[in-house]
Design a protein around this nucleic acid. Sequence first.
DNA 1: TTGTATGCGTTATCAA
DNA 2: TTGATAACGCATACAA
Lengths: 336, 336
Amino acid sequence: MAAPTLDDVAKKAGVSTATVSRCLNTPDRVVKATRERVMEAVKSLGYTPNFAARVMAAKRSFTMGAIIPTMDNAIFARGLQAFQEALHESGYTLLVASSAYTPEIEEEQIRALVSRGADGLLLIGHERDPSVYDFLARQNIPTLVAWSFDATARLPSVGFDNRAAMRAVTAEVIAQGHRRLAMISGICAGNDRATARVAGLRDAVVAAGMDPDAVPIMETHYGIETGAAAFEDLMARTPRPTAVICGNDVQAVGAMGIAAKLGLEVPCDVSITGFDDLEIATIASPALTTVHVPHRDMGRAAARVLVEMVEDKRIPASVELATELRLRASLAPPGG
Amino acid sequence: MAAPTLDDVAKKAGVSTATVSRCLNTPDRVVKATRERVMEAVKSLGYTPNFAARVMAAKRSFTMGAIIPTMDNAIFARGLQAFQEALHESGYTLLVASSAYTPEIEEEQIRALVSRGADGLLLIGHERDPSVYDFLARQNIPTLVAWSFDATARLPSVGFDNRAAMRAVTAEVIAQGHRRLAMISGICAGNDRATARVAGLRDAVVAAGMDPDAVPIMETHYGIETGAAAFEDLMARTPRPTAVICGNDVQAVGAMGIAAKLGLEVPCDVSITGFDDLEIATIASPALTTVHVPHRDMGRAAARVLVEMVEDKRIPASVELATELRLRASLAPPGG
DNA sequence: TTGTATGCGTTATCAA
DNA sequence: TTGATAACGCATACAA
């Protein structure tokens, strides 16, 4: 009735548990005849190794943990998928948890993954309480940060320069003649990507000799509906912005959706830009001008670096990836 | 250097490991003075229980596993989020894995979660190899199916009637005067939801006295781009369909996006319907007619039932939830 | 090549 | 209320 154990298999095959264990982990150290007999028993009993016992005995779990802010939208999906695929190729399983953009929950999830024996951890962004880093150091668990590059931060990272990327978008918007800008940003508290993107916008505005404090910034959670609500609010202001720069494609798509309902045409009446270049950006009407982030490359690079950290026990250099401005129809000079 | 253990805490607090364990698990069975001393030691050492050891000793993990076909889009996100929240309230942690709609990967993930000590499992849909059910039975692990209701299936389920729901959408489309229908469906092989939705469409077509074989059906993976491609293909046919019924909102949104690029207006030139009522359905322009699925209710109900299965060790009745047709602007009589 | 024996960190049983 | 100790299932050092 209970699940079969190594011992059951050993008895059935007429060998010791050590031999069964070897058959499963280092098959070439067992002669073929024995191995076949053991495998036969394994199959007929439907034996599955008990992971907890294996972790305890081997002190390795071949499991990596990742904690992302949300699973609710596509922001992290593509990169995480690539991360997972690359880990799988290296023989690791990925466990994913989400923090709901909440520091307390993130800490709880970190503990949960560590106590589950994760060999390494992937976190998003650098901004968190120092005690978290102390905990990670004490547990001696390799941890990598993604989605945000910062060579000076406490943990190594694989990411891109959010600030420079948003600076480039904004500069382009200004270059096309827009002077009344507005921004829809993610919640900046505890989110270094959102913070950096706001800073990037201000950089560009200042560089153009404009007043950064004259640019209204709506902070909302990443979401289609919240993006739509923020956009509606901005459109009700006087003077009305001619370009709305969004910190994320999800918000931008929400903005585009509500624009149609408000009787505003994009880009004639108002230009909209996004960030991330999610699948939805190319399919939206009009197609969304945005920042292309090499999510898949980032995910694969993160896997490579994290495995290296775990297996070689050394701290690697951070990796910076380039982003790229994708000019599409949602951005045009003011008035069309 | 290594992570602190129960023993370290016990030594530091000057008690036995048993007492420390009790402080953590059944605090009221320890006098306050002792408990405070122990907790003090726990905190100062930054102790985190070793999950593997705990699972081995207690034969319970307070962990549930869920395997969903994909994390790549929002289809399962909302329901899973609610599932997770409800489990959390009951003291369980959720581990999520994705199968990429591939039976082999699903089996692998099931084994991974079982061997990790999951107390219970949530799977999507009923269609899979019988050997999987044998394995689950032998491991004696409570398993629940969601997203698909079928009281006659081998496993209990919490879901809805995909076939009846799609029958209702199609009947409405026909009632509005459409005669040249087409469908964009998910891949039916191994997917009982997609299969049932196609069957529902045929039901309605037959009931209207029309020829079901005259309705072109494009099977594609759920995705914005694939939905767009399928739609483009359908629009190139003669005679051109006046209504395209999609098995999913994601495909429908892809179809709507490409429609604009093809110079087709929705719903004047072609009506489009979806399924799921994701956030994107209301924000799309025009808003998408679709089937509202009570994802959050389903997730919460699934959590309740699964916890019950694990804790009471009995097989519960399946739960059927009602879906609801949401008529919006993307569907109108042919010609506008 | 195979078997024996020990330890991994925790919970639970039984005594004290 | 607390402590000693036996599992739990597996990997591995060491012996044969």
